[in-house]
Design a protein around this nucleic acid. Structure first.
Lengths: 212, 212
DNA sequence: TTATTTTTCCATCAAAAGATGGAATCAATG
DNA sequence: CATTGATTCCATCTTTTGATGGAAAAATAA
């Protein structure tokens, strides 16, 4: 039994998918209240009633968008975990940072929406449970001793790492003029900096733990 | 010549200041489009027309809010710089992280608004130039060789540090359930983690630079 | 081709939201 | 007190926004 979202994800040519795709970008840039159904419909070259026909009301569409980007993100993380599994920590982190920044700079609305979802409230009470990746990433980073539970500390560390990445993607419009770089140079300096700031501490700690 | 904002900042008992203060919180929680003038007026126990009487239109009020929090932030950073000046880097950073997190957890709307301003667009074109602290912080962290210019790399590093802090304040509502901690424990684990992640790399690099 | 289903748009609504004029109220000043 | 100026609220307006019913058009099936 295919949900509407699954249908739209499978056939990216369909109007339903088209709307979803545009909605991702708009909700990502302007947030939930900053985006109007008319903006999305206009960009898609359709009437708002067509939008409502496919997705129900605004809230439904927004929820579909959030679920959609979380699916993408989850898939990306799973693929990445496979790729880095077994490597030493510094390489694992370096590869992960490279891959994630590349991916997110290609689909910046993912970072935008994740951060929006973290940081801002909506007047309309929308209850959507998003999948929780922190525990999986913590495991992948080797931050969990126990296989079952993940300590608060480990989760907070994961959030610090993930957010550091998202920030530079979502903040590009604001940060790039500050550093006065073109997109390409911005991306590469962001990668360097993320690796510099994030990797050192974890690798050092692992060293100490192993020697003791 | 006192601007309206200065007047409101000086007399925190005035209706003008009251409105500004409430507006900070609402704009911080719901963003620009997510906040209505009616929400602010209702919270202040006044009519919307009174709000408009004091602050002009919504855009004007929002701009005042942004200027206001940036002034607060600037003052805080200046005071902090005085306090840590001359100390070794690791202490400087540890004190700064402690002080900033304490301050921002007390006024979370500051972090909220800073991040909103970085990450989201507004339909209404508001042109507000916010003061730029990255260069000053970079100097305070000893990231600038030249006294006049600050390298892109140094600025990006500063942004990484500042954002890491803001994220945990603004994200509290979302992150705290994930780690399942009370507020006090959340704050202290955030401080620990920020120090762990952020300080190590900078201190290591400084060591290497000195030895060469 | 004709019938049926799906998709799209037009017209229109109702509610929400930003904004204002002007009367009423309150506070200060002579 | 009376006058002036500042503040506040009520009533009201306009525009924006989310949403829908039903006709038209397009696609699919018979």
């Amino acid at each position: 039994m295919a949900t509407p979202l699954e249908k739209a994800r499978k056939d990216p040519e369909s109007m339903k998918a088209r709307i979803l795709h545009i909605a991702r970008r708009f909700f990502g840039e302007y947030g939930y209240h900053g985006t109007t159904t008319r903006m999305i419909a206009k960009e898609a070259g359709i009437d708002i009633s067509t939008l409502h026909y496919h997705w129900g009301d605004k809230k439904d569409l927004y929820e579909a968008v959030i679920v959609d980007i979380n699916k993408d993100l989850g898939q990306k993380l799973m693929a990445l975990e496979k790729r880095i599994h077994g490597l030493p920590l510094d390489q694992r982190m370096a590869i992960a940072i490279d891959a994630m920044t590349d991916y997110l700079f290609k689909f910046p609305e993912v970072s935008n929406l994740v951060l929006f979802h973290y940081f801002s409230k909506t007047r309309d009470a929308l209850d959507l449970r998003v999948p929780e990746f922190t525990a999986d990433i913590a495991r992948s980073m080797g931050l969990t001793r126990d296989r079952k539970t993940t300590s608060p500390r480990a989760k907070i560390e994961v959030l610090a790492v993930m957010n550091a990445i998202h920030n530079f993607i979502s903040g590009e419009k604001f940060f790039r003029p500050i550093v006065n770089l073109n997109r390409k140079d911005y991306i590469s300096i962001v990668k360097e900096t993320l690796k510099f700031v994030l990797i050192g501490s974890f690798v050092e700690r692992e060293k100490k733990q192993k020697s003791s």
